[in-house]
Design a protein around this nucleic acid. Structure first.
Length: 538
DNA sequence: TCTCCTAGCACATTTGAACCGG
DNA sequence: ACCGGTTCAAATGTGCTAGGAG
């Protein structure tokens, strides 16, 4: 029943979604007054509610450039920042109303990919989703005036492939496709978003879709990163040398950086022909394509089909013959476009990570906190995964359970289109089929009891933050999943082999989080749902 | 043999404390 | 004592690459 309800919510959102994504957020339902509902004082001026908000992706062109090539994001055990970083310009907020901005990253589909013949291909079914986590902007909650004053940057957000990550970084699976989502939530009187009527908006920029990797597969992406990321400057050609030459003649004479030269010394050119034969980046397989067509929404990478099939066709770029080599084959080549660093200063001063339940598997949440958190760095809530088998069968029951009496963020349903197609998505099997173990951190964080993250997944709110459509956004006047914090003692899960440090850090984190985010005992458990199209198209 | 992942490396940027002068 | 500017070392963020695991 709840499921149906959730579906209904999702459908509603999807129906209200837009595809012209770059600008407006979906208006909330007019009949509801968010300001009053959320207990937020209304501004003296015109009531600027969420329906008036506009969110523009910063460095959209750069994102597009990456997207057209097939964006890859490195994930490491220690955590790696995203580049380009996720930055947005928000307008239309009520200057006096407090908002919470956060990001989550949901699977774009249920496939695992491999880079073969210079293109991405489906390599099988996706692995079990990592425990979902939210990254709350460190300034949250802040007034609309604050958010609108300057760019809102999430550049300190880090991605990791460490399932046991204690630092609150967003956990992803390598060789999987993901879609970042921005959520704007009106903070309630407690500077949290627990209120049932809390309004929120979700914004998806299809350009930000990426495939997570442990090492770059596409040399073009490598070069784009090197050329645009200041931190990678050391891998660029010298100013007097490579770059200057590249500016003089970009097309005819590809620039080869010193690194390329160094690599060539050791590389075997024998691989080149084979690698270039593909010559094209194709982001999607027939499976995805068919899926996309079924929903009537082209997948981003299907634009990939255009983009990815056209971006680096060998025939179109003969220069590749000179400098293009598959990464593994010690090959490199340089892009000749903008050398300007894209990193910019931003309002970011610290971050907050919140855990979101695994998309498919129930998770038990507890909090982690890193040393960074202690130093006003990233804070997050995280949880442990449990067996998918522990996933509640009856969502209504779970929802009604006292244990759920807490703030909830929507749980993620990674592959919404499956439901659209009438083919329910099959949850992944849990990664950490382990028993529950009490964790002090959770209680310290005043975290609501989370018996099982599956609860969040099944909660209505889980559909509350869907990817409604490509480059689209959705808004809701009320977030059913955001509930008052419960005083119920939390349940804890422990993964086998979980590092001890996280536990130590948790306490610090909890404190930090409570202060910086809520100034209240509220929690931000997180589940999210991506009921919309996670792989939007332009 | 291949794919994927990890750790250490060199290089560059960022950060913040220390210092100085007005 | 305070403020603003400069300097510098440590911290941090990059991609590269050899080697290991499966």
């Amino acid at each position: 029943m709840l499921q149906e309800k959730a579906s209904a919510v999702t459908d509603e959102w999807m129906s209200r979604s837009r595809t012209d994504g770059e600008t407006d957020l979906l208006p909330e339902q007019p009949q509801l007054s968010l300001s009053t509902a959320a207990g937020v004082p209304s501004s003296s001026g015109p009531d600027q509610n969420i329906e008036n908000m506009k969110v523009v992706l910063h460095e959209k062109e750069l994102w597009k450039k990456f997207h057209e090539t097939g964006t890859e994001m490195i994930i490491t055990k220690a955590g790696r920042r995203m580049f380009p970083s996720f930055k947005v310009k928000v307008t239309g907020m009520n200057p006096k109303t407090k908002y919470i901005l956060l990001i989550d990253i949901v699977p774009a589909d249920d496939h695992r990919y491999k880079f073969c013949d210079n293109k991405w291909m489906v390599a099988g079914k996706a692995e079990p989703a990592m425990p979902g986590r939210l990254y709350v902007h460190p300034d949250s909650p802040a007034t609309g005036a604050h958010w609108m004053r300057q760019l809102v940057s999430f550049q300190k957000l880090k991605l990791t492939n460490n399932h046991l990550d204690p630092f609150g970084h967003i956990i992803l699976n390598s060789m999987h496709k993901y879609q970042p989502r921005l959520h704007i939530v009106k903070a309630d009187e407690n500077n949290a978003f627990e209120s049932k009527n809390t309004a929120y908006c979700t914004r998806v920029f299809h350009e930000t879709t990426f495939i997570s990797v442990t090492s770059y597969q596409n040399h073009k992406i490598t070069q784009l990163k090197i050329e645009n990321n200041p931190f990678a400057k050391g891998f660029r050609g010298s100013e007097e040398g490579d770059l200057r030459v590249s500016r003089l003649d970009r097309k005819e004479y590809p620039v080869i950086s010193k690194n390329v030269v160094r690599q060539r010394i050791f590389s075997s050119h024998g691989h080149l022909a084979g690698k270039l034969r593909g010559g094209v980046l194709t982001g999607h397989t027939p499976v995805l394509s068919s899926y996309q067509y079924e929903t009537g929404i082209p997948l981003s990478n299907s634009e990939s089909s255009d983009a990815l099939s056209t971006p680096i066709p060998q025939s179109r770029d003969p220069s590749l013959m000179y400098h293009c080599f598959k990464h593994r084959d010690n090959t490199r080549h340089l892009e000749f476009e903008c050398k300007r660093p894209y990193l910019e200063t931003s309002v970011v001063s610290e971050e907050h990570y919140f855990r979101t339940p695994s998309y498919e598997s129930p998770l038990l949440s507890h909090s982690y906190c890193s040393e960074a958190i202690a130093s006003r760095e990233a804070c997050m809530y995280s949880g442990m995964e449990t067996e998918s088998g522990s996933r509640p069968a009856n969502k209504d029951d779970l929802t009604n359970s006292p244990s759920l009496n807490c703030n909830m963020w929507a749980t993620v349903q990674p592959y919404p289109r499956y439901s659209v197609d009438g083919v329910p998505y099959q949850p992944f099997t849990p990664h950490f089929p382990n028993p529950v173990v009490p964790h002090p951190a959770s209680s310290m964080m005043s975290r609501p009891p989370q018996t099982d993250l599956g609860v969040y997944n099944s909660a209505p709110i889980q559909r509350g933050v869907p990817i409604v459509s490509p480059s689209s956004s959705s808004c809701s006047p009320a977030v059913p999943g955001f509930r008052e914090t419960s005083s119920h003692p939390p349940l804890y899960h422990k993964k086998p082999g979980s590092p001890l440090r996280p536990h130590r850090d948790f306490s610090a984190c909890s404190t930090q989080t409570a202060i910086s985010i809520n100034n209240s005992p509220y929690q931000y458990p997180v589940g999210q749902s991506s009921t919309g199209n996670p792989w939007p198209d332009s």
